[in-house]
């Protein structure tokens, strides 16, 4: 039995799917409480490395597009770095290498 959805119903379904995918992405990219994180500068002159060191994080390696892979605590890194224009997210292995995986 093939059911054709009306445009309104299709919009509702797609909206809920988008909510689900966004939630899953948010869970996947949320920085861990402690472990490898990817610091993505949102502004070009954001001093990501200095701020990470000031927050007692360990610099692991250079990430893609000027980002940094660090090892640290979410509580001390996330909000201070975000106020300075640096977003801390989970460090995916394909982008950040095996170091993030091993040290995590």
């Amino acid at each position: 039995m093939i059911v054709r959805f009306s445009p309104a119903n299709m919009c509702i379904i797609l909206a809920q799917i988008a909510v689900g995918i966004a939630a899953l992405a948010m869970l996947a990219l949320a920085p861990p409480a402690h472990g490898a994180m990817l610091l993505v500068p949102l502004m070009s002159d954001a001093p990501a490395a200095r701020l990470a060191r000031d927050s007692h994080a360990l610099l692991l390696e250079q990430g893609p597009a000027g980002s940094l892979v660090v090892l640290g605590d979410r509580q001390t890194l996330f909000w201070p770095l975000l106020r300075a224009g640096v977003l801390a997210v989970a460090a995916p292995v394909p982008l950040c290498g095996e170091a993030s995986d091993v040290l995590a």
Binding site: V3, F5, I17, A23, L24, L27
Partner: peptide, 21 residues
């Protein structure tokens, strides 16, 4: 209707993921 049921399908995939997280 089918649209409502499909919405709960998304919810059913999402809530266990929150437990895992």
């Amino acid at each position: 209707d089918a649209a409502a049921r499909m919405n709960f399908a998304v919810l059913a995939a999402l809530l266990p993921a929150t437990y895992v997280y």
